[in-house]
Amino acid sequence: MRALFDFFVKHGSAFLFIVLEGVSLLLLFTLSESRNAAIMTSAGNISGSILKIRSSIGQYFSLKDENTALAIENSLLRERLWQYESDSAFMAREQMETLLSNPEQTVLARVIDNSTRHDDNFVTIDRGTIDGVEEGMGVYDSHGAVGVVMIAGSRYSIVLPILNSRTSLSCKIRNTDQLGFVEWKGGSVYEALLIDIPYQSNVQIGDTVQTSGFSWAFPEGLMVGTVAWVKHRQNANTLDIGVTLASELNNLGWVFVHQGTPNEEIEAISELILQQNN
């Protein structure tokens, strides 16, 4: 017994190293994408509060720029309102009225932390489960799609933006209705890649890329970006399409969280297919 005690005392630091390293790796590989990670990340209440204070100070100094951006946005909205008022298409009017009559479908949130310099970037917002934010909900700003909520803490949430190698947004090209996925492979923060569009598609530079509406995260037709370039992928029957992102993801201020409702039947079928494929 004494020998065992001496052994532990002699090699105590080695055991401590193994324990601490084990705890760290356990956190890294099991918690990084789970709900429990909220407390260990910037979605936690303490770190979220500190990030919010810093964000408030930063926003105070950028008030002038924000005012200019709001004025521009205001004039664009006014222009769109005139177009809407002159539009006689009854369906479009009905759809917009339905959207406007359900303001609870969106949650306004402030971006309190935002990284754009890594391969896997994250955005932290000051709204959590008590505000109705849940994992999987889509996030967008006044220009277009931003990303999807990855971890929802009680008061703060972490969003997986388009600028993350794990993000894959189901999108379509407006003119052709061709479906594909918008992903990011690193590099410019203003450009992403649209993949899985068939080679035969008639895609033009400047075409609008928008959400397909095939996932509950985003409604159909939300702006993602515009086609910047088109290349034929080698040894494949698909195109690689560069997309200039509509949102300036390195300059986010206020965002909206889309409170879509998951269709349980579709989710169940999707899970079944995934299980069968595995």
Binding site: L20, E21, V23, S24, L25, L26, L27, L28, F29, L31, S32, A37, M40, T41, S42, A43, G44, I46, S47, I50, L51, D113, S115, F122, T124, M150, I151, I158
Partner: peptide
């Protein structure tokens, strides 16, 4: 705690 990668810097 200030990032979204729990355990990475700790390890």
């Amino acid at each position: 705690v200030f990032t979204a990668t729990p355990g990475l810097n700790a390890a």
